[in-house]
Write a protein that binds this DNA or RNA. Sequence first.
DNA 1: TCTGAAAGTATAGGCGA
DNA 2: TCGCCTATACTTTCAGA
Lengths: 168, 168
Amino acid sequence: MTRQLDEIDRALLRALSADGRRTVRALAKSVDLSEPAVRERIQRLERDGVITGYHAELAPAQVDAGTAAFIALRFDAGRAARDQVEAAIHREPAVLEAHEVAGEDCFWIKVRVASTAALADTLDRIRAIPVIRGTGTTIVLRTVFERPLLSAESTAGAADEAEPAARA
Amino acid sequence: MTRQLDEIDRALLRALSADGRRTVRALAKSVDLSEPAVRERIQRLERDGVITGYHAELAPAQVDAGTAAFIALRFDAGRAARDQVEAAIHREPAVLEAHEVAGEDCFWIKVRVASTAALADTLDRIRAIPVIRGTGTTIVLRTVFERPLLSAESTAGAADEAEPAARA
DNA sequence: TCTGAAAGTATAGGCGA
DNA sequence: TCGCCTATACTTTCAGA
């Protein structure tokens, strides 16, 4: 059910990806359509699951999440074990991403915690999941950058898009 | 310059992290403060860099980003080489995250592209950066979940927070 | 904390491809 | 029929007392 997106849809997605609070009015101006037309499109993008939500981006260090790490997980074969691991890591608030990867490891997860001590605690709880057979932790010394999907796409032609956001 | 956040600030951050478009009115109701008081707090959180932006979340598969991979980069020692790599990968739209990590590898980056063919192209360009000495790619077979900071925190007490969002 | 003005959002009805 | 437009009613935000 992959909708076909035209250039206007993509421009709206780029704009909302960069600034999720941009007003319909501003969007309408930048794509040169009327407000109702733009609202229509955005609602369709939401309904069709192209836009899956809107979120504030927070500075990790300011919300007790200044320490990041990737953890590779190896665990017993079989769907039951995998489901158990998924449920357990989903319950850990520090785990922000979980990916099933090719290769020897089964999962790679990204965690953000307040300190290395907190990382140790999280790691202890993960190692305590019964089916887990091993973990490998890679500490992040510095996050160079993180950005949302599409935000780096060239705006090719439409010379708008500035930055930050700030409510209104 | 780490601001001290009280429980109300944290509740606001949780709410905006889960739904970046929630209105001041709704937020005010959920934390039981007046609207101006809440607006005040949010503006301060933005000014102080706790909230660094607002973004729409997009379904990767629908925007030519259905294939994810992590790439470990090894490159020449020294600040000049590092700066060069940073600049080069920042120019690659497919690179969504870049982290300097402890261990043998220098950087770990996360990429999202349309296909494995596109991944090969991206990888070629990265390998072509002069100072790069080696890469190691780990393909993501399936992303189990991804979530924003704070979104998994228990709402402890305030029984609100539902979901998706959708403009108004 | 409240109130009025300004800005933004939603809905309806009509036009043209 | 579908997508866009104009016009109007409504909600939210914001500044000053």
